[in-house]
Design a protein around this nucleic acid. Structure first.
Lengths: 142, 142
DNA sequence: TACAAAGTTGTAATTATTACATTCTTGTTT
DNA sequence: AAACAAGAATGTAATAATTACAACTTTGTA
């Protein structure tokens, strides 16, 4: 039942109480949390947790390829424990980040587009208004 | 011959000495500069220029849709005066940002992928090693 | 020439992130 | 079980990008 623990080991990361808790958090919260979101939410369960540990841990996870770090928000980095290929959408109104499916036509770039360049990761980001905020916005502009 | 000035007007931006200089800079430098790059490089020509003005100006340009602001670099925002659809590639070694052509197959997402979401802009970012750094890296690992 | 609106400037504040030295855990060896 | 070393976690202090803000300047117009 300790999925997070095993996941860390599989990614070459030594599990610790803090690391397991953070990985578990990312599996359970598909909200693209920031360092502070995670720090804040885990603080009750692990009162000794340090913000620096959250920074260190997320950096390590991203380096090991266990998670994605998203720079869709110009203020702070967000993190994503969901590794399946998908795009992200940030709402300019409510500031939430959503997962967007990438359909067949929207494939990730092939070798040919990148002559000689070695891509490690590719991100597709949208910025705009999420369904809910778009509705409100269009209603008000009527 | 004042292309930058006219471009600003066309985008609903009142031209000023500073704004024209910054727009001109972006047209002439396809390097995805940061605020500081621009501030530093224009300082000789306009000694009174303030860093705040560069921030204000770039924010205004981006809001008016005259330029793109790129969040490919987790530290600082970069700017791009080239509006044609293209992707970006940031080298993890030399930290340069390159333009990458998006071929026909790599289209920007269509409406269907975004049910109800209103996309204002879409970015495709790659991170990895540029041709030059990849060559060095592979040579050293031999 | 006077004036208001918009633009620019410089400093101070804010905020995310990193550096670093100290303390704590963990597993291993005696 | 005690001693030890390596790796991890912690907290504070530093750094760096960005924004807030109040004062000053420029521009166009009456």
């Amino acid at each position: 039942m300790n999925h997070a623990r095993q996941y860390l080991i599989d990614n070459g990361i030594k599990p610790s109480v803090q690391r397991i808790a953070i990985m578990k958090y990312l599996f359970e919260h598909r909200t693209h949390p920031t360092v502070d979101d995670i720090f804040h939410d885990l603080h009750d369960a692990i009162p000794t947790l340090s913000r620096t540990t959250v920074y260190n841990t997320l950096k390590l996870f991203a380096e090991k390829g266990a998670i994605l770090s998203l720079t869709i928000d110009e203020k702070k980095v967000r993190f994503d424990g969901y590794k399946q290929r998908h795009a992200h959408f940030r709402c300019l109104e409510c500031d939430e980040v959503f997962d967007i499916s990438l359909d067949r036509d929207v494939e990730f770039p092939q070798e040919d587009g990148l002559r000689g360049f070695e891509a490690v990761e590719t991100h597709v980001y949208h910025r705009g208004y999420c369904a809910e905020c778009a509705k409100k916005k269009n209603f008000n502009n009527k």
